[in-house]
Design a protein around this nucleic acid. Structure first.
Lengths: 194, 194
DNA sequence: AAATCACTTTACACTATGTCAATTGACATA
DNA sequence: TATGTCAATTGACATAGTGTAAAGTGATTT
């Protein structure tokens, strides 16, 4: 079987993903992952140079499976600014819970590991793009409130729908995801639309 | 000198604080702190049971010196809801940069260490209180937008002015602190006031 | 003179990441 | 059947960090 190597790689990626979601990105060691994947700890290093690289690969793997970027691309076409805004919060807001554990793990090492930071920013690029489209569409329609430059509005938009904000409201304040989506929509509309 | 012990303790707290601010909460080991404080690593454990406890003590030490809670108490008296809102963002927004490194260090271990989490929540209690007062004052004045329960409004207010949001806008997006304060005020007013 | 105190030095246990070398077992090929 | 290759294993080791333990030092107190 020529896919033997590839199979193990997938096993490892799945194990990493599962553990990260299970433990919300906390206390997951290379040993844990190896055990879960049914291979030796050293085998991990045959497939990934470092823990950081494994994390990055896992994010990309999950992103491929979940197809976030494909889903985000759907927005690039038609729709009004307000529809874009709502669809963005709906989509991203229901996506976050599925990748929270992994995202948390990445966010934790982002400060110390340059590669991780780059990888994370790459993942976020698609979302940033949608924020940009939304704000630009609102502006085109003359709906963007005065007092915001486009750049500032985009960055604020993107900050509001960040995982950190989601975490604080749902994990910390125990909001339901429904509640989160609804209130964030309200906030964004009131903030950016006259 | 009976204050000999106390002096060393203060030295350690100062060293911790300085290192945390210098390195923004990253890569600060007990050895580093000891060296900076001019004592042996083991001496740290004579004064603090663990790294987590040292962090907590440092936060309380800094909080005492900076007197955040005293400053926050000033709001408890008079003023309109809008003034409260603005003053809150002004005060907290200029306070964050002074404690960012330390806060970052705490936020990082909060997930794994229960005591740290408790300590952090304690520090935030004062701020939460101000958020509550502000929203309640707005509500009393009939200014709070419909669509928000008081609980939700308070939690959203507190999330918006969280350190995580500040970090994303200033560190990540390179906003000036002035810009941050101004835009956050705008966002909060548009969001919560009719 | 003895006790106490704050601190030092040295050593060790433990966990985690990451490296290295020798080895095993399966499969491919000549 | 012998040879080579490949994925993975085992075990040892280096490094860095937290935390524990014990013996020693030097100044102050009593």
């Amino acid at each position: 079987m020529s896919s033997n190597k590839n199979e193990t790689r997938i096993n490892i990626l799945n194990a990493t993903w599962q553990l990260m979601e299970q433990r919300q990105g906390q206390g997951v060691s290379m040993s844990n992952i190896a055990k879960k994947a049914g291979v030796s700890r050293q085998a991990l290093y045959l497939h990934f140079d470092s823990r950081a690289e494994l994390m990055i690969a896992t994010v990309q793997y999950v992103d491929d499976i979940k197809g976030l970027n494909e889903r985000l691309k759907l927005f690039h076409d038609a729709k009004t600014g307000i529809e874009l805004l709502e669809a963005c919060v709906d989509l991203w807001g229901s996506y976050i819970p599925e990748i929270y554990g992994l995202a948390k793990a990445l966010l934790k090492t982002r400060d110390t590991d340059k590669d991780t930071n780059v990888a994370w920013n790459g993942c976020m690029a698609g979302l940033r793009d949608v924020c940009k489209k939304t704000i630009e569409e609102l502006d085109k329609e003359g709906l963007l409130s005065s007092g915001w430059t486009k750049k500032e509005a985009i960055e604020m938009f993107w900050t509001i729908i960040s995982i950190q904000t989601w975490e604080q409201l749902t994990i910390e304040c125990k909001w339901t995801n429904e509640q989160y989506i609804q209130r964030i929509k309200t906030l964004l509309k009131r903030t950016f639309i006259d």
